[in-house]
Structure formats: structure tokens, C-alpha cells
Amino acid sequence: MIIKSRIPVSYLFNELKIPLLYVCLIASISGLLPFFFQSFLSDIPISIATTLGIAISILLSYMMNQSYERWWEARKIWGEIVNDSRTLVIQLKMYLNANTANIEALSYRQIAWNHCLGRHLRKTRSIEDLQKWFSEEEYKDIKEKGNIPLAILSLQSSTIAKLYHNNELDKFSQIQIEETIARLTASMGKCERIKNTIFPPIYRYGLHSSIYLFVIFLSLSVAFKLQHFALEFSILVIVSIVFFFLEKAAFRMQDPFENIPTDTPVTFIAEKIESDILEMLGKENNASPQTSSRQFYVL
């Protein structure tokens, strides 16, 4: 996730270098064609490029809106996860005996759950570095599961049920904590829905092709021919790169859990939750969130 307002030029260049190369090639070819097909090119009106430009603008607007809605929904869901994770620890401290070890065990599992959920969404299953948050028996059981975040929530719910049966929780307290766990489960399901719902690729392919057609017809239209080829070349590149930049931005935002710089900063959020929970437990936090100003993005 990009966390700085100033985006390096190198990042933008890497994103747009392929379209930029093709646009430069098209501009160069269009500058040579009049020497061989002058009579044919003089009949191409600029209205074709204008119509394509309007159509591209409409498609870009639609794609940007839909992509941003997916990205923003993902961010709101993780905002709910932050609130529910804090609420869970507060409820544990409120309803359980302060001296019980179950508060720490349940809180540590919640820390691990946040990290595991982010990795589950990004399809990076490594949890070896999270072993410290579990007992040895719990870790052996959980690491074999196909859906590790769901296994952790199931373990949390089972522990709450045992505490109730052992009379360490009353019925009201059990219901309140179970409701919080249910909200966490619902948030996980919402994230999985976004992850598993593919944005229709036809929009991107159609839009991408339309931009190249726009560049071709604009470069060949007689009304676009200027006195200086360098000026014509520069204008063509600038106009087309604006379209390609917006198209690329929409494409990157439509998948907020793909482990790329523009996705939801699930690792950063999980580390912030970890810091908050350890602080509520009165524990020393040695793993501070990645907020270094030298970093361009946090995954």
C-alpha cells in the first residue's frame, strides 16, 4: 500500500514503460507514413479519434469508480477488523478474572489471526514466524488446516465455550464475546468475497485496445498534423499516457489483496493491531509498525 503522497517517478515509469514504448513507436511510424501514403491519410478525419476519446473517457470513469469502490470496501472491512480486535481484548479484560492466563492466550491468537488473514488473502501461507502466539499443541493443529484464519476463530470460540462451562464466564459475557467473534468471521467472509470475485477482464482488454486505437487514429488524422514533428510526437505521448495512467490505476485498485503497492495495507494494519493489543495487555512491543519515512510503500 502506498503511504507517501509523493510517488517516485521510477515507479510511474515502470508501470507505464510498455504503453509508452508502443506509443512512441506509433508516433514514429505515423510521422513516416505521410511520405508514402499522403493521399490516403488525407481522408482520415479527426472526428474518429474524438469519438474514441469520448468513449474511452466514459469507460475509464466507470472502471475507476468500480475499482475504487472495491478498494474502499476492502479498507472499510479492515477498519472493522481493527475495531473488533480491540473490542475483543477489552471484553476479555472486562469479563474474565484479571489473573487468568486465558486473556493472554485469546489475545495472542487474535494477533496471529490478523496476520494470518492478510497472508491468506494474499495466498502466502507461511506462518512459521507466528508460532510464538500459540501453544505447541495449537500450532501443530492449526498449521495443517486449509483455512488457517477460520481455524483460529474456531479455536477462539471453543475456548470461550469452555470458559462458560467452567463458570469463568456468565451467559451474558459469553454472548457478547461470541458476537464479536461472529463479526470477525463476517469480516473475513467479506474479504474473501472481494478476493474471489474477479473484476470482468473484458473491460480492461476493451479499454486498453481502445486507447491504442485512439492513439493510432489521432496520429494519422490530417487535422493533427503540425508544423514540427517533435511537437506532434510530444503531444501524442502526453495525451495517451494520461489515458494509460488512469487505466493502470483502475486496474491496480480493482484487486485490493494482490500483494502489490496499491493494495490494502493488511500487514501494516495487523502490526498496528498487534501493537495496540500488547499495549492493552501491558506487554512490551518490540515489533513496531513499518512507518519509516524512507519507505515508499508497505505490503
Rank of each mutant, 00 (worst) to 15 (best):
D129Q: 14
E271R: 13
F217Q: 01
R252S: 10
K143T: 09
V82W: 04
E15G: 11
L155D: 09
L60T: 01
F251N: 03
P265E: 02
A270H: 02
S67I: 10
F134L: 02
M280C: 10
I7T: 10
A49K: 06
T197S: 05
V237C: 03
F134V: 03
L236F: 10
F257A: 02
I2P: 01
E179W: 14
L96R: 01
N147V: 07
L155V: 03
L246V: 12
E73H: 10
V9W: 15
L20K: 04
F243Y: 07
N114C: 06
N97D: 12
A182F: 15
L12F: 09
V89Y: 00
A151K: 04
K145C: 07
E168S: 03
Y164T: 06
R6T: 13
R75P: 01
M64H: 06
T197K: 03
V9G: 13
N259V: 09
S157P: 11
V237T: 05
E15W: 14
E138P: 11
Q131W: 11
I202N: 11
I127T: 03
K248V: 11
A230C: 05
N14T: 09
Y139T: 04
A270G: 02
E178N: 05
K4I: 13
I127Y: 01
F214V: 07
I152Q: 00
S288Q: 15
Q156F: 08
L88E: 03
K272W: 15
L218N: 12
V266F: 07
L96C: 02
G282V: 08
A186P: 06
G53R: 07
Y164N: 05
I177H: 06
S292P: 06
A230M: 14
I77L: 10
I56G: 03
R70S: 09
R70T: 07
I198L: 15
N99W: 05
E279F: 07
Y205N: 11
D170R: 11
I175K: 09
I3V: 15
I202E: 12
R125Q: 08
D43A: 15
Y22A: 11
Q176S: 15
L236S: 05
I127E: 01
A186R: 04
I3M: 13
L299R: 12
H115A: 02
E247W: 06
S85F: 00
K123D: 10
V9C: 11
Q110R: 02
W78G: 00
T180A: 08
F37T: 06
C24R: 00
L163K: 07
M280I: 12
Q131M: 09
S135I: 10
L213N: 02
L25G: 05
N99L: 10
